[in-house]
Nucleic acid binder design. Structure first.
Lengths: 145, 145
DNA sequence: TAGCAATCATTGATATGTTAAGGACAACAT
DNA sequence: ATGTTGTCCTTAACATATCAATGATTGCTA
């Protein structure tokens, strides 16, 4: 039996890309005022929520690959948005913590970011929004079990 | 009234990224055997489905920005996967068409790609899968109206 | 305790995403 | 026919994604 490729208009990868474009557009508009990239914002968000983290955990929670994280963290440290500390018991590890300037940015833009998030929830409706998150989680390789 | 930022674990942008990772992983595994990138595969898929297209339409249907498309198309033309022709009536435009080698790749891997797509549909169930596509479409800026 | 494998992180190389600027052509008004 | 404006596409510049290779430590083991 032969499987037909779905039309690209009903292709899951393409639908995910387009949805992401739609969601990120207003966020990027907001971020352009901060000088932060989307990924840098994600790093700050995670650090603000969970406190100091080692690189592995941070990479995991911000959904960034290690090589990207290395470069992003290094750029953010130069701007004093975060601090990097070597773990004293295991010098391979690195602890990353949000710095004052980073926390200030978060505080300054949290409201606007929350409003953007809220606008998408409003567009879909609460129930659809929650279900979308649940369905997306089912595709997340980290949560498959 | 104050909006709270949602926890990153229930953040829509992050959920979209992770879902995309999960969906693309097996596709990338497949593509590694072809020497195609994910985007090149998408270009071939669109051209195979719709026939020869001008760059704008192709960019739109493959969800690629123009600068990316320029580079991708140029790389694919070098490998004779596609052909580029200047539009005779409007020399600004370019018509892009799948070439024999490109069509061969599509034919060769269509089954495997369809099976991967089918496995995600099976994981979510038909109904959930369709609803996911519908919800994602609601976030697509091109379909908002 | 010297050697080796495993872990954590960085670097390199190539492709793409993103924004801004530029180049070529077309359509239109004067 | 000329200049202006708009459209289609490319180039440039920078940041990120991805995979592969390498460096730096640690932990284990003979």
């Amino acid at each position: 039996m032969k499987n037909e490729l779905p039309s690209t208009s009903r292709s899951l990868p393409i639908a995910l890309i387009r949805a992401r474009e739609g969601v990120m557009a207003p966020i990027r508009d907001m971020l352009s005022a901060t000088g932060l990239t989307e990924q840098q914002w994600r790093v700050l968000r995670v650090l603000a929520e969970f406190g100091p983290l080692d690189s592995s955990t941070l990479a995991d929670r911000a959904s960034l690959l290690f090589p990207s994280l290395t470069r992003i963290v290094s750029a953010m440290a130069k701007r004093n948005l975060i601090t990097q500390t070597r773990d004293s018991t295991d010098r391979r590890r690195q602890i990353i913590e949000i710095a004052e300037a980073g926390q200030t940015l978060i505080d300054e833009y949290a409201d606007e970011a929350a409003q953007i998030a809220g606008s998408f929830r409003a567009r879909l409706g609460d129930e659809n929004y929650e279900q979308l998150l649940d369905l997306l989680a089912m595709l997340d390789p980290a949560q498959r079990d």
